[in-house]
Each structure stands twice: as C-alpha cells, then as structure tokens.
Design a protein around this nucleic acid. Structure first.
Length: 133
DNA sequence: GTTCTTACA
DNA sequence: TGTAAGGA
C-alpha cells in the first residue's frame, strides 16, 4: 500500500512515517516511481514502534529490537545478549514509572474524593482561542 | 493528483 | 511542526 493508505491504517502522520524510516525503524519497498510501498508487516511494525515509544524507549533502542521480533512477534530471535540486558533495564525503568503513575493517580483520587461536585459549583472561564498550546 | 526530497523558521 | 518549493 502507498503512503496515503498507510497513514489511514496506522493513524500515524505521513511525516512521522518518514521519520521512522529515517531512524531505521521501517524499510518499505520502493516503487520504480520512488513511492514507498508498505506491507502488512509494516503496519504491525508501526504498532510496535508506537507501543515502545510510548513506553519511553528511544528510537535507536527500538531500531535494535525490531529486527529481533520481526518473525512471529512472540519471542526474541537468537540474537544479541547485549540486547537482553538492555531490555531488562528498560523493563525496570517502566516498572518504576508505573509505580510513579500509581502514586499520582492515588493522589488525585484522594483530592477528588475530598472535593466532590466542585465542578458543579464553580464557574471556570472559557479557554481563549489563542490560549491553547 | 499523489508522493518524493529538501529545507527554513 | 507547519509549510513551501520544485520534481517525477
């Protein structure tokens, strides 16, 4: 499929798809015209990329990981032991972040429980059109 | 009409 | 990131 369909399938902007490719995360075929030709596997790859980026992994790390799970997506290819250590580190970092998020949620829960129905009694100003970031 | 690269602010 | 130029 070409760029337009790939954007539709993944929900990822055209420019970002090119960026992923630039970072070595994607390698779509090229038509004689120079147009990119994406495969179904590429759609899945983008899904993984988004997942890992959200989790805070760098594009360089992801570029190392992707080729190792490209086969069935279930396990690490008989590749690099250095990668295992790296990924265990990432996993640990994610666990720490999860705990921080839990604490944040708990804090908000506490505050919200102590201030019921505030939104019903307080008039918040309408956001200005040019005040959005 | 679609997509390509490059590039500037 | 938004946008534009200039090709294919």
């Amino acid at each position: 499929m070409r760029m337009k369909d790939m954007v539709r399938r993944t929900g990822v902007h055209e420019r970002l798809l090119r960026y992923y490719e630039q970072q070595g995360l994607l390698a779509p075929e090229r038509l004689p015209s120079g147009y990119r030709e994406y495969s179904e596997a590429d759609v899945e790859t983008v899904r993984r990329i988004r997942c890992l980026l959200t989790a805070g992994l760098s594009t360089t790390t992801i570029a190392q990981v992707l080729p190792c799970i490209r086969a069935d997506g279930e396990r690490l290819a008989p590749a690099c032991p250095s990668l295992v250590g790296q990924l265990q580190g990432e996993r640990q970092r994610i666990s720490t972040e999860i705990e921080a998020l839990r604490a944040s949620r708990a804090m908000l829960d506490t505050v919200l429980a102590a201030a019921p129905r505030f939104a019903d009694t307080v008039n918040f100003p309408e956001p200005l059109d040019d005040a959005r970031s």
